[in-house]
């Protein structure tokens, strides 16, 4: 059935959305290896990491967000995620932004970006409530087309509306998931 019951060995075509009814249409998110997503981020002209409330819940996710930020990638912290960066006294480029507002801005080619230098071409979703992230990735896929903005997920869920995404990882596979994030970070 494509969930974590089979250890993630199922084929991408059969991959099940984390919320089983959340099917999409002709274009499905491509299941990608961490290195592939890492290379996409690295090759982006203006990448942005968008992190949400779940980075505060899970051991290790905030560490990875900070590690990605330290590779020079700006971070938009949505919802209460910003607390994590404040508490860690993170001194990199991190901004609090509301996710609906942020996605709306990303869809505007004229938007000046969080730093005033212009819009982003690859936006990476991380630690955001599944269905909220799914809807925002759908908005980007459907309306962020000219110029193309790639919405990518590095969450532990399969995201059908993302251009590239990981599969589903249950809590018992958290270590494996964190390892994937580490591989991605190595490529950056």
């Amino acid at each position: 059935m494509g969930c974590d019951s089979c250890g993630g060995s199922c084929s991408p075509q059969n991959y099940l959305s984390f919320d089983a009814g959340n099917t999409h249409g002709p274009e499905s998110g491509r299941l990608a290896a961490p290195e592939t997503i890492g290379r996409l981020i690295k090759s982006a002209k203006r990448p942005l990491l968008i992190v949400g409330s779940e980075i505060l819940e899970d051991d290790g996710m905030l560490d990875r967000a900070i590690a990605i930020g330290k590779k020079g990638i700006p971070i938009a912290a949505t919802g209460p995620a910003i607390r994590g960066f404040v508490e860690r006294e993170y001194d990199g480029e991190v901004y609090y932004y509301q996710l609906h507002e942020l996605t709306n801005c990303i869809l505007d080619p004229e938007w000046k970006g969080l730093d005033g230098q212009g819009n982003y071409d690859v936006v990476v979703f991380f630690g955001i409530i599944y269905y909220y992230a799914s809807a925002m990735l759908s908005a980007i896929k459907n309306f962020g087309t000219d110029p193309l903005i790639r919405g990518v997920s590095i969450d532990k869920y399969y995201h059908p509306h993302a251009r590239m995404t990981f599969g589903n990882y249950s809590p018992k596979r958290q270590a494996e998931y964190l390892e994937m994030l580490d591989k991605l970070i190595t490529v950056l």
Binding site: G25, E27, N142
Partner: peptide
């Protein structure tokens, strides 16, 4: 601001139409 739940429309027999 729109975030489609699904990329197709199936409201008439011309469809399903891919609107993605």
């Amino acid at each position: 601001f729109y975030a489609p739940l699904c990329d197709v429309c199936a409201l008439c027999t011309y469809g399903k139409c891919d609107l993605s």
